[in-house]
Computed example of a mutant assay.
Amino acid sequence: MTTDTMTARVTLKKVTPDVSAAMRALNAATVSAATSAGLDASLLELVRIRASQINGCAYCLDLHTREARAAGETEQRIYTLNAWSEAPFYTERERAALALTEAVTLVHDGRVPDPVYQQASEVFSEAEVAALIWAATVINAYNRIAIATRMTP
């Protein structure tokens, strides 16, 4: 079955502005919680990019790779993010955040395994873990919105 992936669909901001506003508010609250917990913008962008890679969301990949660069992220780390577990360019904290992001994104593949959660809780505070879970959850929702409505970069 072939589909036309370039034909735009419903514009949610226009048709359901209240729900779209609520989603933006959730995202803003997530960013605020992450900032309050001490997570840096670059790590949040790595989380967003990794979830978007898994979900195949071109719109979010385009947006968040640009945001990552603006936050000081290097091209090398952005390009190798898809293979972060094999690349030497990521810190222990980043690896824990990326593993948690993958588990949340692929929750249907066995939930969030205890070792993944344990690894995150060993290198992040409880507030940081909460913010990372929210960040992964929100970007997954945005990925689904962008893919379902065929938003283009």
Rank of each mutant, 00 (worst) to 15 (best):
N55M: 08
V116N: 00
K14M: 07
V138P: 05
L132Q: 09
A130H: 14
Y79L: 06
A28W: 00
T74V: 07
R24D: 08
G38Y: 03
A28K: 08
T3D: 03
T2I: 10
R69V: 08
R150Y: 03
S121T: 11
Y90N: 10
D18R: 14
L43M: 08
A29C: 06
N140H: 06
V10N: 10
R95L: 02
R95D: 02
T3H: 06
V129P: 02
A87D: 06
A22P: 06
L100D: 07
A29R: 08
R9L: 11
S42W: 04
A148T: 14
W84G: 13
G56M: 08
Q53H: 11
F89V: 06
I139L: 13
I147S: 02
S42K: 14
R9W: 06
E73W: 00
S121P: 04
A68L: 06
Y142T: 15
R77V: 04
Q53I: 11
R95P: 00
M23K: 12
A41P: 02
N82V: 11
L26P: 00
A120W: 01
A148V: 06
D62T: 15
A97V: 11
A103I: 11
F89R: 01
T16G: 10
L44F: 04
E126L: 10
L98D: 04
L81V: 02
A37L: 06
P153I: 15
P88A: 14
A83I: 09
L81F: 02
R9T: 06
H64D: 10
P88G: 12
R150V: 05
V129D: 13
L63P: 15
A28G: 05
G38K: 02
A130R: 12
A8T: 12
Y142M: 15
E94W: 02
I49P: 01
S20G: 03
L81E: 07
T11Y: 09
R111I: 09
K14G: 06
I145E: 12
D4P: 05
T35Y: 00
G56C: 06
K14W: 05
N55W: 03
A135P: 05
L98Q: 08
T16H: 09
A68S: 15
V129M: 14
T65W: 01
T91M: 07
A130W: 05
D62L: 13
L39P: 01
L46W: 11
E128A: 04
K13N: 10
D40V: 02
R93F: 11
A96I: 03
E94N: 12
T65Y: 00
A136G: 14
E67D: 11
E67R: 09
L106I: 03
L44R: 07
A146E: 04
I139Q: 12
N27I: 05
A99C: 05
E73S: 07
N143I: 00
A29I: 02
R24I: 07
R69W: 00
I147Q: 11
D109Y: 10
Y90G: 08
L81W: 03
A87K: 01
G72I: 03
S52E: 05
A83M: 13
A130Y: 05
A28P: 00
V116H: 02
C60D: 06
Q118H: 02
